[in-house]
Amino acid sequence: MKKLSARRRHPLAAVVVLLLALAATGGLYAAFAPAGKAQADETAQSLAIEEGKKLYTVGCASCHGTGGQGTTDGPSLVGVGSAAVDFQVGTGRMPAQQPGAQVPKKKNIYSQAEIDQLAAYIASLGAGPITPTEKQYSPEGADIAKGGDLFRTNCAQCHNFTGEGGALTHGKYAPSLEGVSEKHIYEAMQTGPQNMPSFPDTTLPEKEKKDIIAYIKTVNGDETATPGGFALGGLGPVSEGLFGWIFGLGSLIAVAVWVAAHTAKAKKS
């Protein structure tokens, strides 16, 4: 003991302690870490799950836990279903860049095949909403007007009349629906991501979801006609007022200055 005590101020003592601590932590982890699940049969589905798990371990496990059980940094993913994964990863929201009031959408870095694998893995953890097929979300033959009515009743409170988005409390927000794909809108309604309530088929049947998607695509899609000219963001009186002040009154004052500067003069000075 005396020997050890004599060397406790050695320049390398701290390094040694650190190494010992790391070795102890690593050793303990290796000893107690949950063992891998038993090998499943080699079907395509289980292959996808296997691949998905690998992707999950790299991209998601740090917040959602190694088995999707959730941590203090991220919720449990058991039972969220493949639709939720397809939405969150497909819109680039997950993996999240940083914690905050709300996770914004960003560029998606996963291929659709990888997303499907991830979704398959999460779906294997517990039953949940399934990724919709094109037949379910395609607005083909839907009732646009009815969709508008449903949208104003269920969605406009947060997403604005035509889905331009709106503010929620403490920095949270309902995002703009402009440019969101039909599938993702469907999945969002089905799963209720982040601050959005979910609208399962018992509340909002598949047909009505299609109507809503058709309405959004009509009033806020790529080919939406704006008969009145430029829409000024579709934000209503705030942007209109700002525009009216700056460009309306502003240009009139510019004209007034011009008119006042050109006057009949007895003698040019």
Partner: peptide, 17 residues
């Protein structure tokens, strides 16, 4: 914007400036 119905409301509802 849609017709007025007392049971509906939208966010971003402001009056003119």
């Amino acid at each position: 914007l849609g017709p007025y119905r007392p049971d509906q409301v939208s966010t971003g509802a402001q009056p003119d400036w």
